[in-house]
């Protein structure tokens, strides 16, 4: 099967991934029926993960792995969690993708991977201090289109 990522794109990502510090773990949740973009999203993520040995991926099913999906707050397929991995521990930074990260969103995906690899949100100290004190969950949903 032809690759989704061209050689040129792979080369660019390789360069972007070169300074990656820590390991990044991707959890992909697909669904067997009624998911138009699950197969493509899984392939895309697998091709990205193959580019760096700092990256790993596990493939799950929203229904078969319902407990895990609930634990990670994933309720849509394709659903992707960009997490860190420290030894055997998966560190959740609350970053999720619902839908295929293609077009502009592919750039966001690569940037999110780099962000998690650096283990630094880049947020101002004031923001960090406030967020640390939060006692109730905050869900930010950013609606985007691939073009």
């Amino acid at each position: 099967m032809a690759k989704l990522l061209t050689e040129d794109v792979v080369k660019q990502i390789e360069e972007a991934f070169a300074p990656m510090k820590e390991a990044v773990h991707i959890m992909f949740f697909g669904q067997k029926e009624g998911c138009d973009h699950c197969a493509d999203t899984q392939r895309l993520l697998e091709e990205v993960v193959a580019i760096s040995d700092k990256l790993s991926i596990e493939i799950y099913d929203l229904d078969d792995d319902a407990d895990l999906a609930e634990k990670f707050n994933v309720d849509k397929a394709p659903g992707t969690v960009i997490a860190g991995k420290d030894g055997e521990t998966v560190s959740d930074y609350g970053i999720r993708y619902a839908g295929i990260p293609s077009g502009h969103e592919f750039t966001s995906l690569i940037q999110d991977i780099l962000l998690v690899a650096g283990r630094d949100s880049g947020l101002a100290q004031e923001t960090r201090d406030f967020l640390k004190e939060l006692t109730e969950p905050v869900l930010l949903q950013v609606f985007v289109t691939p073009t």
């Binding site: 993708y97 619902a98 969950p137 869900l139 930010l140 950013v142 609606f143 289109t145």
Partner: peptide, 24 residues
């Protein structure tokens, strides 16, 4: 406590309609 979800608006139309997404 904070979760950020990128939602592909065309793929999840129902949700986009629910929150009246007109621009991205």
């Amino acid at each position: 406590m904070v979760q950020a979800e990128m939602v592909e608006a065309t793929e999840f139309q129902e949700l986009s309609n629910k929150y009246n997404v007109s621009g991205v």
